[in-house]
């Protein structure tokens, strides 16, 4: 049951996107999200949808999984789209009571829906093709300049790594404890909201107890290996940019040029 949560689920593979440097992937993901929010006409939007489709296909991850991550936010997408439908200005196309739909409203709805879906899909490509450790590693390196400002970048990255590392462990533990309580007749699938919340107590208390125990054990193990924070620490896996990364960076810049050209040459519709 808890296994259905596609939370940063890494999908191992050997595609071009899998082999890219995680730092570059992170930057490109942010860039593409910016593009999709900057673009203001259908030409640019269409271009970015094509880019997204191409990326999903080259990632080698079953398209089914992407649909699953979209399904999770389908409600939010539809809700904001419908809300935006009624908030356009200009000539009404259709009117009923206080509800008016204008051409602008329809465009708004389409843009909002595509933007949210794009945001989720881009981040899914990143999390499906990058292992959590690579991802936090990339983040640590990209944020390195902040350590000049006394931001504890290494500590933050370490906390993220540990948190991500323990997500599957905690899920497994939750499954185990839930199974044990179900075996004693705990009923977690029926009843009202209050009853369901109450039914979680027998799961949450053992989970808390074991999490604290794990945290103590981990802290002890880290101290035993003389861990003392980021100062003077070297990396086992040093990241290198390759030709492949250069190509991907060029593709990202080319996409930026196309987006700018679309915005310059075609009229704003949103």
């Amino acid at each position: 049951m808890t296994r259905d949560i596609a939370l940063g689920q890494y999908f191992p593979g050997k595609s071009v996107i899998h082999r890219l440097d995680p730092r570059l992937k992170l930057i490109l993901t942010v860039a593409f999200i910016v593009y999709i929010f900057v673009v203001h006409n259908f030409w640019g939007l269409g271009f970015l949808i094509l880019c997204t489709a191409a990326m999903l296909l080259t990632s080698g991850v079953p398209v089914r999984l992407y649909f699953k991550s979209i399904k999770g936010i389908l409600f939010i997408v539809l809700f904001t789209a419908v809300l935006n439908l009624f908030y356009g200005s200009g000539e009404p196309l259709w009117q009923w009571g206080f509800l008016t739909i204008t051409q602008q409203g329809i465009f708004n709805a389409i843009f909002i829906a595509v933007r949210i879906a794009g945001l989720v899909l881009f981040s899914s490509v990143l999390t499906f093709t990058t292992s959590p450790t690579d991802l936090t590693d990339a983040m640590e390196r990209l944020l390195k300049p902040l350590s000049k400002l006394h931001v504890k970048v290494h500590e933050i990255a370490m906390m993220m790594t540990i948190a991500l590392r323990f997500v599957p462990t905690l899920l497994e533990e939750t499954d185990k404890i839930m199974a044990a309580q179900k075996a004693r007749g705990a009923d977690m699938e029926s009843g009202g909201l209050m009853q369901r919340i109450k039914a979680l107590v027998p799961v949450l208390i053992p989970l808390f107890v074991s999490s604290f125990r794990r945290a103590y054990d981990l802290a002890m193990a880290m101290e035993c290996r003389c861990y003392h924070g980021g100062e003077g620490r070297t990396k086992m896996k040093v990241l290198h940019l390759t030709r492949l990364d250069a190509g991907a960076a060029l593709a990202g810049i080319a996409a930026l040029v196309v987006v700018i050209l679309c915005n310059v040459f075609f009229a704003r519709v949103f």
Partner: peptide, 10 residues
């Protein structure tokens, strides 16, 4: 009774 059943006490 699962393995390490003491983990379920609450």
């Amino acid at each position: 009774v699962f393995q390490y059943p003491e983990d379920q006490l609450f």
